[in-house]
Amino acid sequence: MVTPERAGMRQSAGFRGLVASLPIVTGYLPVAFSFGLAALQAGLPASTALLISALVFAGGSQFVMVGLLSGGGGLLTVLPTVMLMNARHLLYGAPVAALLPAGQPRPPAPALAFGLTDEVFATAISQLPQVGPADRARWLIGLQLGAYAGWLAGTASGLAMGVQLVAQLPLLADMLAFVLPGLFLALMLGLGAGWLVPASCAVVVTCLLLPRLPGAVVVPLAMLAGAAAGACVQRKEGSGVVA
């Protein structure tokens, strides 16, 4: 039987996850703002840009979508490209699922998978082990909801005010370009030494393939390689195997 005290603890787990999302939201707001601005400058309707953020929820892929759509690309061009770029997310589920104890109630897998962005994954991997097993699913949902809300809010702000702000502050557009790489770097440093293997793997794959293949193909392949390497490291650590 779930007592009122226990129910309150589980509710607070979701709130703690929401609080844990604040660093992600801080990084998402300017990136999503930049996306809203880029979508307007590419001639997309504001409603379409907001719908893309709501349904895709993947920063790099959304910028690629804007470029392809504004260049006249059709669904046969846009969808495979976006799916390839987001394929690395398929590798994120297993390490996170391993941290959610069996037998505990959890939201449906598609709901958890939708919010598992790069930044949410990095935060979950580093902080979920410190959350009580019974509270982890609620904490993760809170983390994902906060990140999602921040992304939508940033997109809406860019659509509403982006053009006017850039007209008054021309350097703003250049500054926004550094926010996403800075966010990735901060999250990787927060993982400690755990980011070295996947990052090194991605760099090696990039160096090997870039002279032979287009950048649009190399980048998602390098992401997949890095994500696979990170998943292997997590699996070895979880099974007690010392590399």
Results as ranks from 00 to 15, higher is better:
177 A>S: 11
177 A>L: 05
177 A>Q: 09
177 A>M: 05
179 V>K: 05
180 L>P: 01
181 P>Q: 10
182 G>H: 07
182 G>M: 05
183 L>V: 00
183 L>W: 01
184 F>N: 00
185 L>W: 09
186 A>S: 08
188 M>A: 06
188 M>Q: 06
188 M>E: 07
189 L>M: 08
189 L>T: 02
190 G>F: 12
190 G>I: 05
191 L>I: 09
191 L>W: 10
192 G>Q: 08
192 G>I: 06
193 A>G: 07
194 G>D: 14
195 W>Y: 11
195 W>M: 02
195 W>V: 01
196 L>Q: 07
196 L>W: 13
196 L>F: 10
196 L>R: 11
198 P>I: 10
198 P>N: 09
199 A>C: 14
200 S>L: 15
200 S>M: 10
201 C>W: 11
201 C>S: 14
202 A>Q: 07
202 A>T: 03
202 A>P: 04
202 A>W: 00
203 V>S: 07
204 V>E: 03
204 V>Q: 01
204 V>G: 05
204 V>Y: 07
205 V>C: 14
205 V>S: 07
206 T>A: 13
206 T>F: 14
206 T>L: 11
207 C>M: 12
207 C>E: 12
208 L>T: 04
208 L>C: 11
209 L>S: 09
210 L>D: 11
210 L>E: 07
211 P>F: 12
211 P>Q: 10
212 R>P: 00
213 L>H: 07
214 P>S: 12
214 P>D: 13
215 G>D: 12
216 A>G: 06
216 A>R: 06
217 V>Q: 11
217 V>F: 06
218 V>R: 04
218 V>W: 05
218 V>I: 05
219 V>L: 14
219 V>C: 03
219 V>T: 09
